[in-house]
Simulated assay, not measured.
Amino acid sequence: GDWTDEYPPLPTYQPDPEAEKKELYIMQVKGLPWSCSAQELLQFFSECRIRDGVKGIHLTVDRMGRPSGQAFIEMEHEEDVGKALEKHRQYLGPRYVEVYEVTNTDAEALLKKAGQDPAESDVVRLRGLPFSCTDQDIVMFFSGLDIVENGITVVLDRKARHSGEAFVQFSSHEAAAEALQRHREVIGNRYIEVFPSRRDQIHSSWKKKPSSAPPFVGLPSANRTASASQNRTGSAHGSALHYIHMRGLPFQVSGEDVVKFFAPLAVSKILMECGAEGRPSGEADVYFSCHKDALTAMSRDRMYIGERYIELFLNSDAESDGSW
């Protein structure tokens, strides 16, 4: 059917010929920071009237459920399109964004697709949770939002320990959209990352991961010290707790580039993430030997490697220094 089917029919007493042929005004926005929220886009386009406010903004995600840096925004009217186009190549945070008008036929296809868009999903994925985190902590983190019964799935690593990731299913798309706004808020002293996800992506262990492990980037002497400290603490945590997640790396980045980025701090291990095709995803985890180094390393947040600014997320607890 026609996309207007979802709307209730207009009351008969006010025949409105305009309602028949509704023009669609849709903008495509590219080059957004990964952490960009619908709320920030609403402010960025504050001179434009956006249909249904935040609901008229569709942030798209890639196949892995990660933000793609693009959005489609429904505008009320042609003059709003003009105002939106004036924002082309203006800066939103540290990046300039590109703004294009979408033709009517593409717009209809996009709106249909937006219906099945993971952005319309009621599931989010959390990353960077403290190992001691309980379901109750997650409920508190999303206080005010309605989580369905048994809607929290904590992902365990291969040794059946808390992996620091979890999926949360909410009772509505709206609650999930609101949950995404809490990206980078804190539990304990750790940033929690909140990503869009879907029900079919929920899993409770890492066994299903297609690639066995991300490639280690050779830093042999440092790797030895990392394993030594693990033996000493009698637990596989140890240095594993002091890492920084990097996002936005150029694809051709090398381990050496990452070491230089954090110099003179000593990096003990680098895990580069790969996407489904084995290509680098632009993300990496960088391990340090102690909380203090990881904290110091955070001062490099939003500095550049080549043309790209790098976002850093802290995953380290002061308590986990020394022995467990």
Rank of each mutant, 00 (worst) to 15 (best):
W3F: 13
D5V: 02
E6H: 15
P8R: 05
P9R: 14
P11N: 06
P17S: 01
E20R: 09
E23S: 14
Y25C: 15
M27Y: 12
S35A: 06
S37W: 00
S37P: 12
Q43D: 07
F44A: 01
F45C: 04
S46K: 14
C48H: 04
V54G: 09
K55S: 01
G56A: 03
I57Y: 08
T60S: 00
G65A: 13
S68E: 05
F72D: 08
H77Y: 10
H77Q: 11
V81Y: 04
R89H: 04
Y91Q: 08
G93T: 05
P94Q: 13
V99I: 15
Y100M: 11
T105G: 15
T105A: 15
A109Y: 01
L110D: 10
K113G: 00
G115K: 08
P118L: 02
R125N: 12
R125F: 05
R127H: 10
R127N: 08
R127S: 06
F131A: 06
F131C: 09
T134D: 02
Q136P: 08
D137W: 01
M140C: 13
F142P: 02
S143H: 10
I147M: 15
I147A: 13
V148P: 01
I152D: 00
T153H: 01
V154W: 08
R158F: 07
A160G: 02
R161C: 03
E165R: 12
A166Q: 02
F167P: 07
F170A: 04
E174D: 08
E178P: 04
H183G: 12
R184Q: 13
G188M: 04
E193D: 08
V194C: 07
F195Q: 05
R198H: 07
R198D: 14
D200Q: 10
Q201G: 07
S204Y: 00
S205R: 01
W206Q: 03
A213H: 07
A213R: 12
P215M: 06
F216D: 14
L219M: 05
S221D: 11
A226M: 09
S227C: 09
S227H: 05
R232A: 11
G234S: 07
A240R: 05
M246S: 06
M246N: 03
M246W: 02
G248V: 12
G248I: 01
S254H: 02
D257Q: 09
V258S: 05
F261I: 03
V267K: 04
L271Q: 05
E273W: 12
E273L: 15
G275I: 08
E277L: 11
G282P: 08
E283M: 10
D285A: 10
D293I: 14
D293Q: 10
T296R: 15
E307T: 12
E307R: 11
F313N: 05
D317A: 14
D317H: 09
